[in-house]
């Protein structure tokens, strides 16, 4: 076991990459920032909209701002002693290595399954030694027991692996928060075990 001071000290030398700053990415980044993760590399091309506020870590007065900028501001308001490296761009197979090489852990925090597949394939191929934590299935409400975490080699899967978003199955704060914090928790487990 470690004291919080020891945890912070160990995490201060760690770097985590977060692909996407939506419901999963913004909440996971904030959790990792609160515990003192040294460097967070965050990436998204989108802007904050009103519909994001039901689950994403932004404020009403940030509607219209770049997500990477707004999230950097929010993180540094909570913990100004860490580094945030924002990349305002669309993640593609061509830039993933450049963005996330050197990270101790990568968190997949995309919305669409096509993007999840693209990131997983690219990381497993080009950065196979870096643990990748994906969020899979968190729409709707209730069903606490359906959310789990499992591991396939260096790939960690958090979520219920069942509920796909749709008009009658929106992603909303509680379960998105659960999965994003589970991803942060897995990241800590990896980061604190390695050091």
């Amino acid at each position: 076991m470690l004291t919080f001071e020891e945890i912070k000290e160990r995490l201060s030398r760690k770097r985590v990459g977060i692909a996407g700053c939506g419901g999963l990415g913004s909440n996971c980044a904030v959790a990792l920032a609160r515990v003192g993760t040294g460097t967070l590399v965050i990436s998204d091309f989108d802007i904050v909209t009103e519909s994001n506020l039901n689950r994403q870590y932004y404020f009403r007065d940030q509607i219209g701002q770049k997500k990477t900028l707004a999230l950097t501001v929010n993180i540094l308001r909570i913990n100004p002693f860490i580094n945030v490296i924002p990349h305002d761009l669309k993640i593609t197979p061509a830039n993933i290595s450049g963005l996330f090489a050197g990270c101790d852990v990568i968190v997949e925090a995309f919305d669409r399954s096509e993007e999840k597949e693209m990131l997983i394939e690219t990381v497993l191929t080009e950065l196979p030694s870096i643990p990748l934590i994906v969020g899979l299935g968190m729409a709707g409400w209730g069903m606490n027991d359906s959310i789990h975490c499992r591991r396939i080699d260096n790939l960690y899967i958090c979520g219920d692996e069942q509920t796909e978003i749709g008009p009658d199955m929106p992603p909303i704060a509680p379960r998105v928060g659960m999965v994003s914090n589970m991803q942060a928790n897995v990241a800590l487990e990896i980061l604190l075990a390695k050091s």
Binding site: E121, E164, V176
Partner: peptide, 28 residues
């Protein structure tokens, strides 16, 4: 080992193999 999408027709699965098929669903 990751199987590329382009290799689904040719990649063979044999006795004793360990296979993972992960379904990706949207939401995040």
């Amino acid at each position: 080992r990751l199987v590329n999408k382009t290799d689904y027709e040719t990649a063979q699965i044999h006795e004793g193999d360990e296979v993972h098929v992960l379904h990706l669903i949207s939401g995040g």
